[in-house]
């Protein structure tokens, strides 16, 4: 087990290096010149060259990459061009905001989809199955930003139960998920984020449970006198490796793909930050955000792999 874990961890290092190269290259490929955005309309070519040199943008690409990588390794992601604050702090702060609601959403979606999926698979063709399938298809097909807007219209504007946007009066610095006055700001973003993974995971849970229930060993379990509840526990344990993989994948998507939802709810997370960085051509901020997101994705996959090998003894050997 430890050997497997060690090997798996070592294997992530080249992946992470690849991530940094792609992060770096993506920004180089992107059209536009960030220096132009900073200059006043009256600036001369000399001013531009000076500024370019100040940011190190006049160096060869390889040199720029290694300088950048060296700084990244010590946690220096450079200065944000538009705000003139360290990128690392800004990204980290946004990342915490994103990962917490992403985690809550995905865990919520996971638990609900497990229950839904098991019921649907166990009672195939029943009314419950059809209702659950309808909810799942709704979750998969509805664009989350549209859902976000609808939620705002319904719960914030019409019913005034929940605040429409932002993180509330206490601001993101002192935001606490354990204080209702703060938490109510997170409810709608969580719902909007949770619905698509809920739909996808319900569908996969349903089909995996149905598949497991058709396997021979289920008959053995019944033949030895287990109750249906105990049989279902076995079936659920058996889909856990897949379910955990799915969970990790969805968490990755939520972290990277929350731009729209965070923009709708002005939730100050990485998606919001990414949007801002792109619009202002803030390359260090963009790079830093993408790097943190990609690294998070890689690490989530690592955790998923390790968790899978813990659950499924057959995976340890390979």
């Amino acid at each position: 087990m430890w050997l497997y874990a060690g090997r798996r961890i070592v294997l992530t290092i080249p992946i992470l290096l690849g991530v940094t190269i792609i992060c770096f290259a993506l920004v180089q490929i992107a059209p536009g010149d960030p220096i132009q955005n900073l200059l006043s309309p009256t600036a001369t070519a000399q001013d531009a060259a000076r500024l370019r040199a100040a940011y190190g943008l006049d160096q060869p690409l390889m040199v720029q990459y290694f300088i950048w990588l060296g700084k990244v390794c010590v946690g220096n992601l450079g200065m944000s061009i538009s705000d003139n604050v360290p990128v690392a702090g800004e990204v980290l702060h946004a990342f915490v905001n994103t990962i917490v609601i992403a985690l809550i959403s995905v865990v919520l979606a996971f638990v609900v989809s497990m229950i839904f999926g098991v019921i649907a698979a166990y009672r195939t063709g029943s009314l419950a199955d059809r209702l659950i399938t309808a909810v799942a298809v709704f979750g998969i097909s509805v664009p989350p930003f549209w859902l976000g807007v609808i939620l705002v219209i319904f719960f914030a504007v019409d019913l005034s139960w929940l605040p429409a946007t932002g993180m509330g009066a206490s601001g993101s610095e002192t935001f606490s998920y354990f204080r209702w006055a703060d938490f109510k700001f997170a409810i709608m973003p969580i719902i909007a984020l949770a619905l698509p993974p809920l739909g996808i995971m319900t569908r996969t849970t349903r089909s995996s449970i149905a598949e497991i229930l058709n396997q021979d060993f289920i008959q053995t379990l019944r033949a030895k006198g287990l109750s249906e509840a105990q049989v279902i526990v076995h079936a659920v344990v058996n889909i856990m490796p897949q379910a955990v993989a799915m969970l990790g994948l969805q968490l990755g998507y939520l972290i990277g793909g929350s731009v729209l939802v965070e923009t709708v709810f002005t939730w100050p997370g990485t998606g919001y930050l990414l949007n801002k960085a792109v619009l202002t051509r803030d390359i260090p901020l963009l790079q830093g955000t993408i790097l943190v997101l990609a690294t998070a994705f890689v690490l989530i996959n690592l955790v998923v792999d390790l968790a899978q090998s813990l659950i499924d003894p057959r995976l340890k050997r390979s």
Binding site: D216, F217, Q219, T220, L221, A223, V237, N238, M240, I311
Partner: peptide, 19 residues
Amino acid sequence: RGSLISMVFQEPMTALDPL
């Protein structure tokens, strides 16, 4: 099941829960 009457199946490869 399993106490008064029990059953041995044909396929030992798939008759046990792998996990």
